[in-house]
Design a protein around this nucleic acid. Structure first.
Lengths: 197, 197
DNA sequence: CAATTGGCATACGGAACGTATGTAAATAGA
DNA sequence: TCTATTTACATACGTTCCGTATGCCAATTG
């Protein structure tokens, strides 16, 4: 057999990523002991250093995985919208909803930026931001959004507001009510981007 | 003399905070060795643990100091505006400009949230956010801002967008140009809050 | 002036990380 | 098929850093 070798390697990589993802998402990056979560995957730190170089390398791999999943989910939801503007708004609110999940919040919005720096400069630079930038550009072409704005910069601002909204909701005593307030405020801000007709 | 004692204590506290602030602001919280920066202040970790309990406690003290300074600066700038709306906008853009400074960005917007959690729940909960919340409420009373929004939630969203804008600018190759783009996009978003007259 | 409090240093133990080294299995070449 | 080499991963070690426990000296209190 020529395959088993490659498959075993892929499997250990996957096991390490899964174990790290769980540890990072629950207790946080800094508090996650490499000895502990590698052991929980039935491995040791030796495997980790071999495949990912160091703890940061593993975090990058985890982030890449999550980012990919988020991009898929955003596309699924947003593609159903009737108008392009609605498509855009849905994309943003979906983003907020995803950011509500503790694992995403912790890894993508807190530990990730703290350990690896500005997300906009990550290797796989946020597929979500790229998508939003793309839609903003089209909306400008359609004459829906004011033309003088830089799409990518605007997408980043919106992203910042989204993640803040998500944190606000997640830490709230009454997530349901807070969620409504945050999304309302968020949509109101987005209205500022539209051309007054 | 009754003073020298108290003065010495205040002085060591100040020295520790200053040394930590410098270390946190340059190399970052996680990479700052307590042995190193206490030594640079002519002290040891003993003093640190005595006054602040642990490393996090010192970070809190540093944050409280910076937060106070930021509040002062925001008030200085914004109080000169002719209208209340302009006052509010100035407040926001000043916030962005401050967030441009590497020390503020690193400590207040990256390491702070990562280590201490959601800034909105900090003990001295961001004087800046409190101020913005206050202004938004008044603007609603004046009929300038749409009335159905929750002021605090809105202030948090704006804060999130601001810090994102600041990071964007700071990491840009051409900060001047990026700054213009970001502030333009930001002002546009704020327009969404105004009532259509 | 004696007793006590409190500010700060020193000493110790433990945990975590990164590296260097070892080993067994799989692949490649003859 | 047999040997050589690569590769995946474990083990062992040294270093760094944090938190606690303890000790000392100066300042305050009576």
């Amino acid at each position: 057999m020529h395959r088993p070798r490659k498959e075993m390697i892929a499997e250990t990589r996957a096991k390490l990523i899964a174990a790290a993802r769980h540890a990072f998402g629950t207790v946080g990056y800094a508090e996650s002991s490499m000895d502990d979560f590698t052991a929980s995957a039935g491995l040791t730190r030796g495997a980790l250093y071999h495949h990912f170089g160091d703890k940061k390398g593993l975090l990058q791999a985890v982030i890449a995985e999550i980012d990919g999943e988020m991009a898929v989910r955003v596309n699924e939801v947003a593609s159903k919208a009737p108008t392009r503007w609605q498509h855009f708004v849905d994309e943003c609110t979906t983003y907020i909803e995803m950011a509500l999940e503790p694992e995403i919040q912790r890894i993508m919005f807190r530990d990730g930026p703290a350990v690896l720096g500005d997300p906009a400069q990550w290797p796989n630079a946020s597929a979500c931001i790229a998508s939003m930038t793309n839609h903003l550009t089209k909306l400008q072409d359609d004459g829906v959004v004011v033309p003088e704005l830089d799409p990518e910069t605007t997408a980043l601002l919106i992203n910042g507001a989204s993640s803040q909204a998500a944190q606000r909701i997640a830490n709230s005593g009454d997530p349901e009510a807070t969620s409504k307030k945050a999304i309302a405020a968020f949509k109101q801000l987005l209205e500022g981007l539209r051309r007054k007709t």
